[in-house]
């Protein structure tokens, strides 16, 4: 783990002043996007962008484990999927009126379901994290992958909730006062949740907790020597990361009205990792940029040729070889660590 990347978020970079305005420009563009899309008759863009926003939440959540905690998790798709299934199962029971396991009432309320998704993923992350953190380095990467695979096969075999075919929901979860069936409304709901999440993660990065994790990343032994319970802090980072990923999974389930084990396939964990690395691990906006760039590139290439992977593959290799530190650190005089 000592090699895991992540620059000190507190370090003042010698970047030009205009960089401070970039997030604002980005926000304005995001707010304008659905209206522009409608004006140009490209309303599919709104749902594409919604997908990007949701994955940005997941990537940003993974970043808390990865960039802040220095934990390379190759199993975050598990939390993404668990969050999605939590929403899917609650919604199914909410629609049928039959309580889950005979006593847990179902629900079709968006806020309730997302809270449940976050709690359930947090608990699962807590269990997996407690076990996985006994290892470090490559074994940590692999044990997180192993747990994700176990959950993947569990949901594949879970016939009661569709098994491999997944679980479809009749309608999107509701939020009183808003028409969630409308794609633009849903887009802004997702955007709001993303912004809230980014706010939380920015607070985390700059909190005492974040600073301690930064110290642990740089020298675990030194932090232990001064009496910091390093494993507990890493575990907490892992759990928070799982909570955010579960939130994204739950939101994706509502958006697509569909959950399937495919959401926890190991390639999904890989894609989340790619988003974070591409955008810049350890930065606030990096994972968001990474999610937009990767999904954008995939969509563009797939629309262009059926052999899109032959271009995306080398593009990823090139990015790994050339951009150290990710998109978010471009234009800074100081490069990633």
């Amino acid at each position: 783990m000592d090699k895991a990347r992540g620059s000190d978020p507190m370090k003042k970079s010698g970047s030009p002043r205009w960089r401070g305005f970039l997030p604002l420009v980005g926000l304005v563009l995001l707010v304008a996007l659905p209206f522009a899309a409608q004006a140009f008759g490209q309303s599919a863009l709104t749902s594409l962008a919604t997908r990007m926003l949701i994955l940005a939440i997941a990537a940003s959540a993974l970043n808390i484990a990865l960039g802040l905690g220095g934990l390379v998790s190759f199993g975050h798709a598990a939390f993404y999927g668990v969050g999605a299934y939590a929403v899917g199962i609650l919604t199914t029971h909410g629609a049928s009126g039959m309580p889950f396991l005979g006593f847990v009432p179902g629900s079709e309320h968006l806020a309730v379901n997302l809270l449940v998704a976050m709690s359930v993923s947090g608990i699962v992350a807590g269990l997996i994290g407690a076990l996985a953190l006994r290892t470090s380095g490559v074994p940590f990467i692999m044990i997180t992958l192993a747990f994700a695979q176990m959950l993947f096969f569990f949901f594949v075999a879970l016939k009661a909730y569709g098994g491999d075919d997944g679980l479809s929901m009749r309608r999107r979860n509701a939020l009183p006062g808003l028409n969630m069936r409308d794609d633009v409304t849903f887009y802004f709901t997702s955007l709001t949740i993303l912004l809230a999440w980014l706010g939380v993660s920015a607070r985390l990065f700059h909190s005492r907790f974040g600073l301690l994790l930064g110290g642990i990343r740089q020298s675990e032994r030194r932090m232990q020597a001064i009496g910091v319970p390093t494993v507990r802090y890493r575990w907490l980072a892992f759990v928070l990361s799982g909570v955010g990923t579960g939130l994204a999974g739950g939101l994706m389930a509502v958006f697509g009205r569909f959950v399937s084990p495919d959401m926890m396939h190991w390639t999904q964990s890989g894609e989340l990792l790619i988003m974070v690395v591409l955008g810049g691990a350890g930065t606030i906006f990096g994972p968001v940029l990474g999610a937009f760039a990767l999904i954008g590139l995939e969509t563009l290439l797939a629309g262009w040729t059926e052999h899109w992977q032959i271009i995306l593959g080398p593009a990823l290799v090139l990015m790994a070889l050339t951009f150290r530190g990710g998109l978010a650190r471009l234009g800074r005089s100081e490069q990633g660590p």
Binding site: Q42, A49, L297, T299, L300, L330
Partner: peptide
Amino acid sequence: MSVIRKAAMAAAAGMSILALTGGAG
């Protein structure tokens, strides 16, 4: 930061914008 690297980034960013506008026939 090399010029080439910047150009490559710009190209990648440009592509994702294209993805957002590409289209109708």
